[in-house]
């Protein structure tokens, strides 16, 4: 499997560390109630198909939101998490 790092281009999966669905970026504020907070942290769409998830490119230190497919393993794009959040 090969993924896309916006800094480094297409690289082997061995260079990356995975961290699950990009839903994790939508961190609620501390004013949000505990149940909603727990749901944010634990419940997942977990799609069979298109998904966006978090990958850390170990050599360059970039956190990347990768758009890919969980059924075909097609990889469409990679965006810097810091850009996605802006």
């Amino acid at each position: 499997m090969r993924l896309i790092c916006p800094h480094c281009g297409e690289r082997d999966r061995r260079e990356f560390t995975y961290q699950g669905a990009a839903e994790i970026l939508d961190r609620p504020s501390r004013e949000v109630g505990n149940d909603d907070w727990a749901d944010y942290l634990h419940l997942r769409e977990n799609p069979a198909g298109e998904t966006k998830d978090m990958w850390y490119h170990d050599p360059c230190g970039a956190w990347i939101v990768v758009h890919r497919d969980t059924v075909t393993h097609a990889v469409h794009s990679g965006e810097l998490a810091s850009e996605v959040r802006k």
């Binding site: 499997m1 999966r13 995975y18 699950g20 069979a48 998830d53 969980t70 059924v71 393993h73």
Partner: peptide, 13 residues
């Protein structure tokens, strides 16, 4: 393999 997947197949690493 450490990525979410429904493919029932894995990769070389």
């Amino acid at each position: 393999d450490f990525y979410s997947s429904y493919a029932q197949r894995g990769n070389l690493p």
